[in-house]
Design a protein around this nucleic acid. Sequence first.
DNA 1: GTCTATAATGAGATAGAC
DNA 2: GTCTATCTCATTATAGAC
Lengths: 219, 219
Amino acid sequence: MNVITEQKQRQRAPSKRSLETRMRIFDAAEQIFAAHGFDAATIRDIAALAGVQGALVHHHGGSKEALFAAVVARRAAALSGARTAALTALQAKGDVTLRGVICCFTHPFLDRVLGGDPGWMAYGRLIAYVSADDRWRAIASQHFDPTAKVFLAAFAQVLPGASQARLAAALVYMVSGMLSLCASRWRIDDLSGQGDDTEDLVQMFTDFSEAGFRRAVQG
Amino acid sequence: MNVITEQKQRQRAPSKRSLETRMRIFDAAEQIFAAHGFDAATIRDIAALAGVQGALVHHHGGSKEALFAAVVARRAAALSGARTAALTALQAKGDVTLRGVICCFTHPFLDRVLGGDPGWMAYGRLIAYVSADDRWRAIASQHFDPTAKVFLAAFAQVLPGASQARLAAALVYMVSGMLSLCASRWRIDDLSGQGDDTEDLVQMFTDFSEAGFRRAVQG
DNA sequence: GTCTATAATGAGATAGAC
DNA sequence: GTCTATCTCATTATAGAC
């Protein structure tokens, strides 16, 4: 008996059909979690939207919590990669400014989430939930803290003399604004009494963050 | 038969004991809703914390949603009053500056929520939930929009020429930062790798907001 | 991998005694 | 006003046929 053939726990590679089903389930979970939050979302809703039976959701996603974590993780790697790549490119050009570092952090997120793709739009609301709730602290730490620390180092370079605490606080304020720009545009519309232009909002959010960052880290 | 004696639906004034029980239930609901969010919170948890039976929670609070709305409403009036009073006092002095208007909006909230009172601390997290979730849009509109519009008018005075859309967006960014300062201090601590000083955080948040506001509303 | 059927649990809400 | 007991419903998760 050949041991090699048994060394992998999974005997066969997943079929193409299986992978497609899994993606449908993850996409559906992303939409439902984003629309209702973790607790109000039900496996039944997710299964119905994916067009499968509830048992299949458990088969592919495990428990409800594991499914939630998997949905968050799925796009987190792509996002972190885009952010650090942009920062690396900026540093390679030798043209590192505060605004440049800010844009390397915000644009990979805003471009995707405001770009109209339903998956990324849902992901934006999902991240707003994750960031706001202490309960998902572990998920937030795992997926976002490493990148955040890389950017804190970059911010420290362009804003020498600023304390870690102030840089961290400014970054958190900026992120909360970025998330509210994606998840709470209805509030902006309600208060301004009119629709708004996405490009203008992004532009002024960047202005807001840059000026705030620069002012806040001063002693 | 005297019609007068029946014109009120509630025949007797609530007893002192009843009012105390009601307050205990509302306080417990405030804590549980803040700790777990609306859906993960249960009437049973609230009843247990208040030291009463579940049926009594329904008696005083009505449905779960009505109880949630009542808990939010309870402190909202006091907060709005403090904000508009501070603004009125500032205007009476004739010393209206951007930073002054910002402080009239943020300090009544931050003083209470960061002041150590458990009820107000819970309320801060609760408002973070309400502001982030489309589901509570009606509650947010009812309790916060009127005050927000008063302040938008004041911001327009100290920042003439700014569009309503930009002022509204800047206010939303500021509010989201204020809420994350209360609800997500653990993120700041995690990223900075150290504890932080509350006064310093408030100071630099105000700096951040003032500079952001001023810069963002420029064309 | 996919499905049906169901187990096991816990939820919000209410009726009615006191 | 308060409590006990219970109703009704929806949930996650799993067992086992195909």
